[in-house]
Computed example of a mutant assay.
Amino acid sequence: MPGDEGRNYIRGFGYQGSASRGGWSRPAEELGIGAELKNALSTPGAWGINMTAFGEILPYHDNKISLNRGVTDKWGLPVLSFDVSLRENELEMRKDMKQDAIDMLEAAGVKDVVGTETPYAPGMGIHEMGTARMGRDPATSVLNGNNQVWDAPNVFVTDGACMTSGSCVNPSLTYMALTARAAEFAVDALKKGDL
């Protein structure tokens, strides 16, 4: 973080990864039979380790999506237009994501470590957030505190759209809790005739 480690960005990142032995698809590729196939299946390939980094994209106020009424889908409905980009904070963080992974693996004794960087754009991650902010005021938010769309009370949004950010942790349990709470609210509202 800024100051304590000389990092020139805010927030943080995490890693997910795996280790496995390669070569398990060789029999399918080589189409052996009999003892040859059995031997190929029982001889694993070399070990490999993979780490993937993920970091927070800050909730920039001007990142947004909107309906593009000039372009429609096959049903004649407007498609979404995305006006979202990675900024200097995220681009600087990506440098440390890569180098820190290399450093950790090498410190653990892993040999032949190769750092790679693949292109990334918002939306490629599995836990993207924002676009339907939850809040207390319909002028500044899309959803009320029950995840109900202010302008369409029979619509509830309980995925990451309601959150502006989730740090660099997996938010799936939070989504589940928000969904359970919204469902309970909706059932009670239906029973009362309010929905």
Rank of each mutant, 00 (worst) to 15 (best):
F82G: 00
V110H: 04
S85W: 10
G130K: 02
M124Y: 15
V149D: 09
T140D: 06
K111A: 11
Q148M: 15
K98R: 14
M93Q: 03
D112H: 14
P122R: 12
V113S: 07
P138C: 09
M134T: 05
R133T: 13
T116W: 08
G115W: 02
I126F: 11
D100A: 05
G123D: 10
I126Y: 09
G115Q: 03
E106A: 11
N89D: 13
N144K: 07
A107W: 04
S81A: 15
V110D: 03
V113Q: 06
N147P: 00
D112W: 01
G135D: 02
K111H: 08
V79P: 12
E117G: 10
K98V: 13
M93H: 04
E90S: 05
R136M: 05
L91E: 13
G109V: 04
T131M: 14
L105I: 03
A107P: 05
V79W: 09
A108D: 04
V84A: 05
T131V: 15
E92W: 02
P119Q: 02
E90Y: 08
R133M: 08
E106P: 08
P138S: 10
P119S: 11
D83S: 12
E88G: 00
D96Y: 13
R87E: 11
Q148H: 07
G130E: 01
P122F: 12
G125D: 12
E117D: 13
N89A: 07
E117A: 13
N146I: 01
G115K: 03
M97G: 01
M97S: 03
Q99D: 06
P138N: 10
T131N: 12
A107M: 07
G115N: 02
D96M: 01
M129G: 06
G123T: 05
G123I: 10
V142M: 11
V149R: 10
A101H: 01
L80V: 15
E117N: 06
M124E: 13
M97W: 00
V142L: 11
Q148R: 13
A132D: 06
V114G: 01
V114D: 06
E117S: 15
G130Q: 02
D96R: 08
P138Q: 11
N89E: 12
R136Y: 07
R136N: 12
N89G: 06
T131A: 10
L86M: 12
G145D: 12
N89P: 05
G125I: 04
P122G: 13
L80S: 12
V142N: 01
D112R: 14
V149A: 15
D103G: 00
D100N: 13
G115L: 05
D96F: 06
G135M: 08
F82N: 01
A101L: 04
F82H: 05
L105D: 03
E88N: 10
D83K: 12
K111C: 06
N147Q: 13
G125N: 08
A139E: 15
G130N: 04
I102A: 09
V113M: 07
A132Q: 09
F82E: 01
G145M: 15
M104K: 11
A107N: 10
G115I: 02
V84M: 15
E106C: 07
D103S: 10
K95G: 13
G115P: 01
D103V: 07
Q99N: 12
Q99G: 06
W150E: 01
N144M: 07
Y120W: 08
G130C: 04
L91T: 11
A108K: 00
N147H: 14
A139C: 05
D103L: 03
V142Q: 02
